[in-house]
Amino acid sequence: MIQTTARNTAESNHTSYNNDYMLEVSQLRKSYPKKQALQDVSFSLKAGTSFGFLGPNGAGKSTTMKILTGIVQADSGSVRLLGKEATKNPDAVSKYIGYVPQEITLYDKLSAYDNLEFFGEAYGVRGKMLKQRIHEVLTQTGLLDRAKEEVGTFSGGMKRRINIAAALLHRPKLLVLDEPTVGIDPQSRNHIFEMIRDLNREGVTIIYSTHYMEEVEALCDEVAIMDQGTIKAMGPLGELLENYGQKAIYVEIAGAHHLPEDPDVTAVRKEGSGYVLETENLHGVMQRLLRLASQHSWDVKQLEIVRPSLENVFLRVTGTALRD
């Protein structure tokens, strides 16, 4: 079983480096002329983690990823990849990291094959190995039969798949994906999800940036919530939901126009044909509701614990809705 532990080095005040970590990011700062893009961003990933960066546009996700991949220089802080300082080992960065940018960065006038050949060689893969890898990634993307066609003729989803494939040719140990599913159809999105899950199962560490909660929930076992250049919360998905998710019960009673007051219920809101009751005492409130229903012969159609959502976590951590 792959150990998947992210730690917030800033919170734990952990300054020494550990070779067990695939990636250790410490105190990253970056500012642009009119904006502080990152402020003391720190986190560490063990090999095999599928790590999600969740945050709205402008939160600092892309800047973080560009620093990790050596495209942008941080003002201060450090990035260690497999125990080595990344800025001093740029070759290690390009060798071990595959970067999928937010934009579709392919040559429209070239075929899918020619695009992959270019990026493969740019990553240092040559000869027979390159041909074999191109064949493999085209198979992975389901586009082997379209290899010789110009990328410009592809649909958005197909381009996105080739966009990812271009970062896989050198068998990276860490795959950094910056919002790789923007503007594509559900079928292509599912295909991409499957590709990422397969890669993660093969041991590739994933960093996945998105502003879609459902994508993080579907793909990631570790999450960092970013807003305004800082990591607001970070940890295993279940832990975040447990710590920050609002506990609630959904109840639907036929003919009930209002519910009796309960001292443990902090808020009630109408949702569909029933009510959502927010409470920290889930079992106590449910027991009392069932007792009342039995006493008054209410027809209880539905009574269940509401699963805390990442959206709710985000709202509680940042104080704003994600898509604001």
Partner: peptide, 13 residues
């Protein structure tokens, strides 16, 4: 403009 240069910088070039 297309971000290709930025991406190329993440490779060994």
């Amino acid at each position: 403009k297309t971000g290709l240069l930025s991406r190329i910088r993440s490779t060994r070039v």
